[in-house]
Design a binder for these strands. Structure first.
Length: 783
DNA sequence: GAGCACTGC
């Protein structure tokens, strides 16, 4: 029904648009009369029909000084003569964001840059193309939400239009566009969503994929999809924007499309390497900071390290060492930066360097010590020196045993390049690489290993099926995933009932594909009404999915060789292996005991899923009060985000007429029904307690341990788990007590005993099955 | 009894 209403609105808007264009024609008509007209400056905005503001001309003058402006005519000509065009250069250098989970905060804090860059200009050039018709609609994708928002706002300003009207953006939770919109910035995942409803993307005349070199999962899927669409739509044009490193690969993939180089970065950066390899990169980084501070001209320093503890440690050591130098040097301020840092602390990176201690004294310097959050997601102006030890923490996924872990690994050349670029934002800079030039050339991988090759593809396969791609094996991936990964995904979807035995999308699968969740979770949600607890499952899903933003999906950096030898690496004690902890519960260093006690108050003896439900309920009962969150060591941002997700899920449930219901809270079945519903989605993630006292995952037979963060007060015979992580041991995290009988009731096709490796769990299930048979016989006999 | 790279729908 909501689609129906939407259609009516857009019909209305088409009428409205026609009215606008007649008005426009009239305005332009009166304007172009007379031979002298072309010499006059254009004063009427052709998109709005309004007179341009003074500010428009001020910005225009600056835009005209940009190097890319020189290439406008050439660009338009190449675009006219070709269906696909690849632009290479330093993309993505014109965005600035501040860290925050809250979109409102972000909007208030986005700072306007004084420099203008390629991705703001190219779409505007496209709109000026006369060969695309009167009001061609242009889409421009970005891998990150904030980029889509901030760039579109900037462009709306440059075009002298209101954001959300002619220029807009569309991201999850927020569609700021209208029927008037001719240029829409959106996340790559969002364009993929649009393609699910409109497979030929017919509303667009031009699609621009920015930051294509980042190779996000969504971008990779769009590549293959758009290649198909371009064949079916000769009128559609595609512009791919990428960094230079793999330009030829892109060209080869897009059938020899023309390459055009565009200038990007404003200032040169001088690169320095060490003569010999460094044994201790942390020590070397601190030493380099001190040297820069003593010997180099003023300018802030950015140091890349791998994790919170290392960063805090480095900040302390830097401050100590510089203080030891006394009056010989100016004052410094060492500022840590990582994603879990409270926002108030994060703000510190934008504070100016400290002033000289006395008038005419040595200048101060700001030293930002950061994870690779500062590599792509966040830009800090004023950085002149970058220190790059060459490592970052990267997530590794092994599809064979479905285990993920985080490990400190060497970065890629592309990543090193990106890091050094951070030095040249405001003036010429210097980058100190704490490895040898030989090592850079020979040891670092050229590119970020694409996400699609190291991800669980169950969700992607479901999306592709929904997009009408039946033959996954012959789908034109730029880097085809391993056949086993695809097979594994198909198998999981078949067990969940999303695909039938021929691999075709079922009705259930179609509904599941509409949820922005992984398939197990959407299955659980879709069937939860059958267990009379969809309200509660909604809350749990929202909480889990909010946590999964942090710990389940996608992994980013380069690591192909690591991947190939991952098993060996896991065995290696040299490499630091860390896990990712969900952040719904806050545990400050100075109040760990109080935080644990607060958490225990929410604990549910049957498991962590139910504990999450308790937290959500308590949050709502306390009117989402931030001070209540603070007092109870609850991360308010996480809860707010979960609530946001929940609302979106409710809307999708309504679209498919899925009932919202709850079991009576006083009923004995209230929690039983919830636990059963969990199993309906996650029946493939069950572990059994062996007589030895260890848990074994069912079917995979991996020895696992309950993560100590769990809140069970006993060791249940059967548990369902949300994730399996490898840190110091094999852990299953977020676990809930379930009953063996439910396995054979709810997922008999998975627990069929025929393709089941022999183990204790199998023998227990066999007993349960025969007991079930016997019970059936008994009841029959009684009758 | 563990220890927090980064994003997307």
């Amino acid at each position: 029904m909501s689609t129906e209403r939407k259609r009516k609105v857009s019909l209305f808007d088409v009428v409205d648009e026609a009215a606008v264009s007649t008005k426009l024609a009239r305005v332009n008509g009166s304007f172009t009369v007379g031979a002298a007209a072309p010499l006059l400056p254009v004063t009427i905005n052709r998109w709005t029909g309004r007179t341009y503001s003074q500010r428009y001309f001020e910005i225009l003058d600056k835009r005209k000084t940009l190097p890319v402006w020189q290439q406008k005519d050439e660009f338009l000509q190449v675009l006219r003569d070709n269906q696909t065009l690849i632009l290479v250069g330093e993309t993505g250098s014109g965005k600035t964001t501040q860290i925050s989970c809250d979109l409102d905060d972000l909007l208030a804090e986005i700072r306007v840059l004084t420099a203008y860059f390629v991705i703001e200009q190219i779409p505007q050039f496209v709109l000026e193309a006369d060969f695309l018709g009167k009001r061609p609609m242009v889409a421009c994708t970005q891998p990150r939400r904030v980029a889509a928002m901030s760039v579109s706002r900037r462009v709306a300003e440059e075009m002298d239009v209101t954001i959300g009207e002619e220029v807009g953006y569309s991201i999850r939770f927020e569609d700021c566009s209208s029927a008037k919109t001719i240029l829409k910035y959106l996340t790559d995942g969002m364009l993929l969503r649009e393609a699910m409803a409109d497979p030929l993307l017919e509303r667009y005349k031009v699609i621009i994929l920015d930051e294509a070199h980042e190779r996000t999962l969504a971008t990779d899927v769009l590549f293959g999809l758009l290649k198909e669409v371009l064949r079916n739509r000769p009128d559609l044009k595609l512009v791919v924007m990428s960094a230079t490193l793999e330009a030829e690969k892109f060209q080869g993939y897009f059938n020899g499309a023309p390459l055009m180089k565009v200038p990007g970065r404003l200032h040169p950066v001088e690169i320095f390497y060490t003569q010999d390899p460094e044994r201790d990169y942390l020590e070397a980084a601190i030493r380099t900071v001190v040297q820069i501070h003593m010997c180099e001209t003023p300018g802030d320093i950015l140091v890349f390290l791998t994790g919170e503890e290392e960063i805090e440690d480095a900040c302390r050591k830097i401050t100590k060492e510089i203080n030891n130098l006394g009056d010989q040097v100016g004052p410094i301020k060492a500022v840590p930066l990582y994603s879990t840092l409270p926002p108030a602390m994060q703000q510190k990176i934008f504070e100016p360097a400290p002033a000289p201690l006395k008038e005419g004294g040595l200048p101060g310097r700001k030293i930002v010590v950061s994870t690779n959050i500062a590599e792509t997601s966040l830009t800090i102006d004023g950085i002149v020196y970058v220190i790059d030890p060459g490592f970052s923490k990267q997530k590794v996924y092994n599809p064979r045993i479905r285990v993920e872990s985080l490990l400190v690994s060497p970065i890629s050349k592309a990543s090193a390049h990106q890091r050094s670029g951070r030095a040249g934002r405001t003036q010429p800079g210097k980058c100190f690489r704490l490895y040898t030039e030989k090592s850079f050339n020979n040891d670092l991988q050229p590119q970020t290993y694409p996400e699609i090759l190291r991800s669980n593809l169950a969700n992607t396969v479901l999306t592709l099926k929904k997009l009408g791609i039946d033959d996954l094996v012959h789908f034109d991936f730029m880097d085809p995933p391993a056949p086993e990964t695809l097979m594994r995904a198909l198998e999981v979807l078949n067990y969940l009932g999303a695909l039938d035995d021929d691999g075709n999308l079922t009705k259930l699968g179609e509904i599941m594909s509409e949820f922005p969740l992984d398939p197990q979770m959407s299955k659980m949600l879709v069937v939860s009404a059958e267990f009379n607890c969809s309200n509660e499952i909604l809350s749990i899903s929202a909480m889990l999915s909010e946590l999964q933003f942090l710990n389940y999906f996608l992994m980013k950096q380069c690591w192909s060789r690591l991947y190939a030898s991952a098993d060996l690496l896991w065995a290696s004690s040299v490499i630091t292996i860390l896990s990712i902890v969900p952040n719904c519960f806050v545990r400050p260093r100075d109040a760990q005991k109080a935080a644990d006690e607060a958490k225990a108050r929410f604990g549910h003896i049957d498991g962590d899923h139910l504990t999450l439900l308790n937290v959500y309920h308590a949050y709502k009962q306390n009117n989402e009060d931030p001070s209540w969150c603070f007092d109870n060591f609850i991360n308010q941002r996480a809860l707010k985000a979960a609530d946001n997700v929940r609302q979106q899920l409710v809307r999708i449930m309504a679209r498919f007429n899925l009932k919202l219901c709850s079991t009576d809270f006083n009923s004995r079945d209230y929690y039983v029904n919830i636990r059963k519903a969990l199993l309906a989605g996650y029946f493939m993630q069950v572990a059994h307690l062996e007589r030895t006292g260890h848990y074994l995952t069912v079917k995979d037979n991996q020895v696992v341990h309950l993560h100590p963060s769990n809140c069970l007060d006993h060791k249940p015979e059967w548990v369902i788990y949300n994730e399996y992580v490898l840190t110091s041991r094999n852990f299953i995290r977020t676990v809930t007590d379930i009953r063996g009988e439910w396995l054979i009731d709810i997922a008999p096709h998975y627990y069929d005993l025929i393709n089941f490796p022999s183990c204790e769990a199998k023998r227990v299930l066999e007993r349960l099955y025969s007991k079930r048979e016997k019970d059936k016989q008994d009841t029959k006999n009684k009758k």
